[in-house]
C-alpha cells in the first residue's frame, strides 16, 4: 500500500518537473541523482583555499582522506548530523566553507574521538571538528545548533568568574540564555527537569554556594592572553 503511494508520488513529481535545464541535459535527472543544491543559493559557491585554511589552523592533513568511511561507521551520533564525518572531510576539500560552518555536524559531534582513533590515514578528525567550531565561534556564524555555542560560552564564563565551574549557577544561566527554559515549558518537559534538579539538590550533588579559587586573576590572565574574552 505504502509502496504504491510512494510510486504515485514519484510519478506526479516526475510530471511536475520543470522544463529541462542545464543539469538535466547533463543527465542528472535520468540517473536519479539530485544536482547539488543548497537551501539559500541555487548552487554551491566553493571558497578556494578553504582546505589550506583548515589544514594550517588544525595542522591536520585533511587532504590525505581517501573516503574509506571508517569515521562515519564508528561515529555514534551520525543520526543527528547533516554531513557525515567523511562527507565533511570531502566538503572541506571542495571548499564548501559556508555550508560546513553552517552545518550541524561539528556541533553535534560529541568529541568522543572514535574517528580520530580509527582513521587509517592518521587524520585527527575530532580535532578538525574543533577547528571548524572555533572558526564558526570566531566568525559568529549562524549554524543549525543554536544552543551548543551558548552552552560553551556559559561554561567558560563560569571558569572566568571563579576559576572553577559552579554547576548550579551555570545550569541556571544556560537555561535562561539559551531559551531552553521557555522551550521546555512549551513542551511540558520542565516538570521532569525540575524533579531531577530537586533530586540532585537534596542528594547533595549540586552545591548551593559557589567556591572560588584564591588566584582567579591567574586564570583570567590566561583568558586574556589567549584572546578568549
Amino acid at each position: 500500500m505504502s509502496e504504491q503511494t510512494s510510486l504515485e508520488e514519484e510519478k506526479s513529481q516526475k510530471t511536475n518537473l520543470p522544463p529541462e535545464d542545464e543539469s538535466s541535459s547533463r543527465g542528472f535527472n535520468s540517473l536519479a541523482i539530485k544536482p547539488l543544491r543548497t537551501e539559500n543559493k541555487p548552487w554551491f559557491e566553493p571558497k578556494p583555499f578553504f582546505l589550506k585554511e583548515v589544514e594550517s589552523l588544525s595542522r591536520e592533513k585533511v587532504s590525505v582522506c581517501y573516503q574509506c568511511r571508517k569515521c562515519s561507521n564508528g561515529c555514534p551520533v551520525t543520526f543527528a548530523m547533516d554531513f557525515l564525518p567523511n562527507q565533511l572531510m570531502h566538503a572541506i576539500k571542495m571548499g564548501l566553507r559556508d555550508e560546513i560552518l553552517g552545518s550541524s555536524t561539528p556541533w553535534v559531534c560529541a568529541s568522543c574521538q572514535t574517528c580520530t582513533t580509527r582513521c587509517p590515514n592518521d587524520i585527527d578528525i575530532a580535532h578538525v571538528m574543533d577547528t571548524l567550531r572555533q572558526l564558526s565561534v570566531q566568525e559568529k556564524t549562524v549554524n543549525k545548533e543554536r544552543n551548543a555555542p551558548i552552552f560553551h560560552q556559559v561554561f567558560l564564563d563560569s571558569i572566568w568568574r571563579r576559576g572553577r565551574v559552579y554547576e548550579l549557577g551555570m545550569l541556571q544561566t544556560y537555561a535562561l540564555k539559551s531559551g531552553d527554559f521557555k522551550d521546555k515549558m512549551a513542551k511540558g518537559e520542565l516538570m521532569n527537569d525540575l524533579k531531577l534538579g530537586w533530586a540532585m539538590l537534596t542528594k547533595g550533588k549540586l552545591p548551593l554556594l559557589p567556591k572560588s579559587i584564591r588566584r582567579v586573576k591567574e586564570v583570567r590572565n590566561i583568558f586574556k592572553k589567549t584572546k578568549s574574552r
Partner: peptide, 13 residues
C-alpha cells in the same frame, strides 16, 4: 583551577 573541558577545546585552541 578547571581544565576547560569540552568548552575549552571547542572554542579556543
Amino acid at each position: 583551577s578547571c581544565c576547560g573541558a569540552s568548552s575549552g577545546h571547542t572554542t579556543n585552541e
